[in-house]
Design a protein around this nucleic acid. Structure first.
Lengths: 136, 136
DNA sequence: ATCCCATACGTTATAGCATAACACAATTCA
DNA sequence: TGAATTGTGTTATGCTATAACGTATGGGAT
């Protein structure tokens, strides 16, 4: 059993702990918020958290929100690569909505192709007020 | 002469200094890089730079690159609002290409509309290798 | 002119985000 | 078994950003 590239299986202890924290909340958490939650469980220093986060992002289980310097658990069931996610971030309630819009993805890809830009990663983060918060 | 909302005119001294630094380089600069450049001109502390940057961003003269924690001068001639810019960032040479693609903009707007998300600002940053760097 | 107000300034201190570098442990696999 | 790789824990440090304070400045309105 060689369990190749980027599998979601057998996360290490720290990775599991970090993933657990991100999974049990609805919104994003900063690395230091995660650290604070995990002090009881033996996690004591930033590098421990950042290392776990790096791997989880690499595995596609977690996304980094650049405009927030924070991290969210990926809400996609499967473990597909899908590095083409966009986010809507509510500036009122803090909720993050993960979206994969095919035509948006395609438009971005086309844009890159047209300019002969070899795309590695796309960061798309939309800020605003979500439906629920507008009602309220 | 009332010089209303968000005009690009009569920037303050610090704003001009910061704008000057951003204008004379081709790529993005961090706030602290700007600060270092301006020490000779009497700028001594981070808040001075950050305050200037905040205003310049507000005026639409400068963009913040969230995925880089850095700032670039806007390359659009006019002073239109155009908060719908996207960026391609070359991970090899560091150059930043500012693009305004109407159909991308529209797609984002449609996405927001469909989910009844009231859009305030969109951050679109594409990472990869630019045409020039691929050739080399 | 004078007062008011809004905006900008300068400074100190501190908060918040992230990584370098080192030594050691565990795991894999030849 | 031993080499290579990956993960761990720790200390220290660097980079990014803002809070909070007091002062200055410049444009109305009266």
């Amino acid at each position: 059993m060689s369990e190749s590239v980027g599998s979601t299986n057998h996360l290490t202890r720290n990775q599991l702990l970090v993933m657990g924290e991100l999974s049990k909340v609805d919104g994003p958490l900063s690395a230091y918020e995660i650290l604070d939650q995990l002090r009881d469980h033996g996690v004591r220093s930033p590098p421990q958290v950042y290392r776990a986060l790096d791997k989880l992002v690499e595995f596609g289980l977690v996304h980094k929100l650049e405009s927030l310097n924070a991290f969210v658990a990926c809400r996609h069931p499967g473990g597909e690569p899908h590095e083409k996610t966009a986010f809507m971030i509510c500036e009122n309630c803090g909720q993050v909505f993960e979206i994969t819009d095919d035509s948006l993805t395609k438009r971005v890809a086309a844009l890159a192709r047209d300019t002969q830009f070899s795309l590695t990663k796309s960061t798309i983060e939309l800020r605003g007020i979500c439906r629920g918060c507008q009602a309220a």
